[in-house]
C-alpha cells in the first residue's frame, strides 16, 4: 500500500485568523479517511487545500505523489471534488453538466456520452437526465454532483459533507456509493459532522476541532479511548429480569439500567467480565433474545475529546457574530 495523500503540519491563515494550526492528515490508497468535526473546525479548509483551491501557509501537502503547491495541475488530474455546496449548474440538464465536465477533462466525444450515460444510470438519474438541475431534489443534486466528480475516474475523491441536509434514506444511498468507490480502489476523504457516518464508512478517522487534529485512529480505537463498554441483555422471559439484574450487578459491581423495556445494560470494565456473565447466564438457565457487548458511540468520544458535543447550536450562541 502506498499513501494516496498526506498533509503534514498544514497551516492555513485567513488574515489574523488561523484556520488550521499544523494539521496532519493521511490515507493509504483504497481507504476512506473520515474527517470529523463540528462546523468551523477547519474541515472544509483542509479539503480546499488538498484539492488545490487554497494555498497552504505552512507544512507540506502531497496528493497522488505531487506537491499541491509545486504541481497543482498534476494533483488536479488525479482528484475529484464534491464540495459542500452543490457544484453543478442549475440551468443545465444532468446530461449537460456531465458533458461540460467531460469536455473540460478533454475526454473524447464518444467517451463523454457513454461515461455520462453510465454514471447517470448508476446514480439513478437516467429519467432526469434531460431535465434542468433546477428541478432536482436535494438528493438527486448530490448524486449528480458526485457523478460529475467521477467523470474523469479520479484516483482520489474529496467529499466535503456529502450528506449534510439529506434525509436518512438518501444518506444510506450515498454511503453505498462511497463503499463501491472504495471497493474499486478509489481513495476517499470524507468530511462529516455525523459520527454515525464516519463510523459507517471510514477506515480511519481524524477528529478535528478548532483547526487541530485532536485524535486519530480507527473507529474502534477511538471508541476505546472513552473505555466503558456496556453489556446489554434482553432475557427471553421478562420474568428473568430480576435474576439478570443480580448477575450483572455481581460481576460488574454496578447497578444495571434499563434503556428500554425488558432490556438491561451496564458498563463493564475489563475483557473478562462479558464472558463470565455469559457463562453465568447459561448456568442459571436464562435464555436471551439479545446479548451484546456495545462500544460507546462516537458522540461520547467527541464529548470526551473536546469537552463539548458535536451539536454546534451552543457554540453558535457563544461566538459573537
Amino acid at each position: 500500500m502506498s499513501t494516496a495523500f498526506q498533509a503534514e503540519g498544514l497551516v492555513k491563515r485567513f488574515g489574523d485568523f488561523t484556520a488550521l494550526h499544523g494539521v496532519d492528515l493521511a490515507a493509504e490508497e483504497g481507504t476512506v479517511l473520515g474527517v470529523l468535526g463540528p462546523n468551523g473546525a477547519g474541515k472544509t479548509t483542509a479539503v480546499r487545500v488538498l484539492s488545490t483551491l487554497l494555498r497552504p501557509d505552512g507544512g507540506t501537502v502531497t496528493v497522488a505523489g505531487n506537491d499541491v503547491v509545486r504541481h497543482p495541475d498534476r494533483v488536479r488530474r488525479a482528484i475529484g471534488l464534491t464540495g459542500q455546496f452543490a457544484s453543478v449548474d442549475d440551468d443545465l440538464t444532468g446530461m449537460e453538466n456531465l458533458t461540460l465536465i467531460g469536455r473540460l477533462l478533454d475526454l473524447r466525444g464518444g467517451e463523454i456520452k457513454s461515461r455520462a450515460k453510465r454514471l447517470l444510470a448508476d446514480f439513478d438519474l437516467t429519467e432526469a437526465a434531460k431535465r434542468t438541475v433546477k428541478t432536482y431534489s436535494g438528493g438527486m443534486r448530490r448524486r449528480l454532483d458526485l457523478a460529475a466528480s467521477l467523470m474523469g475516474r479520479p484516483r482520489i475523491v474529496f467529499l466535503d459533507e456529502p450528506t449534510t441536509g439529506l434525509d436518512p434514506a438518501k444518506r444510506e444511498e450515498l454511503w453505498g456509493v462511497v463503499r463501491r468507490l472504495v471497493n474499486d480502489g478509489t481513495t476517499v476523504l470524507l468530511t462529516t459532522q455525523y459520527l454515525e457516518e464516519a463510523d459507517a464508512l471510514a477506515d480511519a478517522i481524524s477528529v478535528i476541532d478548532h483547526g487541530r487534529v485532536i485524535a486519530h485512529g480507527t473507529p474502534a480505537e477511538l471508541k476505546r479511548i472513552v473505555g466503558g463498554q456496556s453489556i446489554v441483555v434482553r432475557p427471553s422471559d421478562p420474568a428473568d429480569l430480576d435474576r439478570v439484574d443480580r448477575i450483572l450487578s455481581e460481576f460488574t459491581g454496578r447497578k444495571p439500567e434499563s434503556p428500554q423495556r425488558g432490556v438491561l445494560a451496564v458498563p463493564a470494565d475489563g475483557d473478562l467480565v462479558f464472558t463470565a456473565v455469559v457463562s453465568e447466564l447459561a448456568l442459571a438457565g436464562i435464555g436471551v433474545t439479545e446479548l451484546s457487548l456495545q462500544l460507546p458511540d462516537l458522540d461520547d468520544v467527541f464529548f470526551k475529546l473536546t469537552g463539548h458535543t458535536t451539536s454546534n447550536d451552543n457554540e453558535k450562541a457563544e461566538v459573537p457574530a
Binding site: D106, L107, R180, N183, T186
Partner: peptide, 25 residues
C-alpha cells in the same frame, strides 16, 4: 455502478496526455 468504476483506469493517463493536446485553452 461497479462495472463503470472498475473499468481499466487508463483514463487518468489519457487525460494527462490529452491535456497536452494543442489548443486546450
Amino acid at each position: 455502478m461497479t462495472a463503470v468504476l472498475t473499468e481499466p483506469s487508463t483514463t487518468v493517463d489519457a487525460i494527462a496526455s490529452a491535456a497536452k493536446r494543442p489548443f486546450a485553452l
